[in-house]
Design a protein around this nucleic acid. Sequence first.
DNA 1: TATGGACCCTGTAGCCACTACAGGGTCAAG
DNA 2: CTTGACCCTGTAGTGGCTACAGGGTCCATA
Lengths: 136, 136
Amino acid sequence: MKAGAIKIGELARATGTKVETIRFYEKIGLLAEPSRTEGNYRAYGPAHLGRLSFIRRSRDLGFSLDQVRALLSLSDDRNQPCDAIDLIAREHLRAVDAKIADLMALKQELQSIVGQSHSGSVSTCRIVEALEPLPH
Amino acid sequence: MKAGAIKIGELARATGTKVETIRFYEKIGLLAEPSRTEGNYRAYGPAHLGRLSFIRRSRDLGFSLDQVRALLSLSDDRNQPCDAIDLIAREHLRAVDAKIADLMALKQELQSIVGQSHSGSVSTCRIVEALEPLPH
DNA sequence: TATGGACCCTGTAGCCACTACAGGGTCAAG
DNA sequence: CTTGACCCTGTAGTGGCTACAGGGTCCATA
Ligand SMILES: [Zn+2]
Ligand SMILES: [Zn+2]
Ligand SMILES: [Zn+2]
Ligand SMILES: [Zn+2]
């Protein structure tokens, strides 16, 4: 193993990623295949660490793997305009906003169903009533 | 086909469910197997319609299929206390709330990254900067 | 009576982003 | 020399559907 190279477990610890997830990223072509040691262990260098950190950070921000793939390849052409990157980020922000709005509406509806405390039997339960399609 | 019985397509239209989804619910034991016509078509009665409506309504409210299963079986014992049902609903509301909080935090972070309009090259893009692990 | 088209059947595979084995191999310490 | 931590490959499972492929049924119309 070259100087500075690390094994998959160390890479996992360094990036807060599970070992299986790293192998998964490699299998789907998101993370480049590293070289191997004599014992067939993966040997990662600093470039892999940077790449995987980028991926994890993007994932933590909620980007899909396809978006991450695009972000990675776009950010490799350092002299290109960054419009495409900005567009992906803005679109993701818009999607997050939409999801929040959906969940807020859902929360409203759930609150109106769960409402104040009530105890009794199933036959008079307001939650069951709200779920059932027909009047009793 | 008995009087009042309907085919899967009609049940799908009546409940806003896809035909494949109905068959899927049957396969996982969520919706009871209906009787069959001579031509081996599923023949649903009013009970199925009610059951599927309950399921769809619960799904629309964001309950998981396991929760729906529990809600269904709990709501069948009409004379039991409804505590268990209420607990499921309250727990779900709590989860929705947590999800909203997560997304709000995410939105904040994304906004601080996307920020004001900025155009330039990838090498100076603040989004790329926010994603990359190391200083340039 | 033939034929077209709308509907139905079963079974399998795909989606996303992992996660969890099973059944082995490698390597360093004690 | 053995133990135990780590690594390897490959496959299958998660949730909640959705989309075929390759047939069968049923009814109306020409
Ligand atoms: Zn109640
Ligand atoms: Zn009822
Ligand atoms: Zn930019
Ligand atoms: Zn950089």
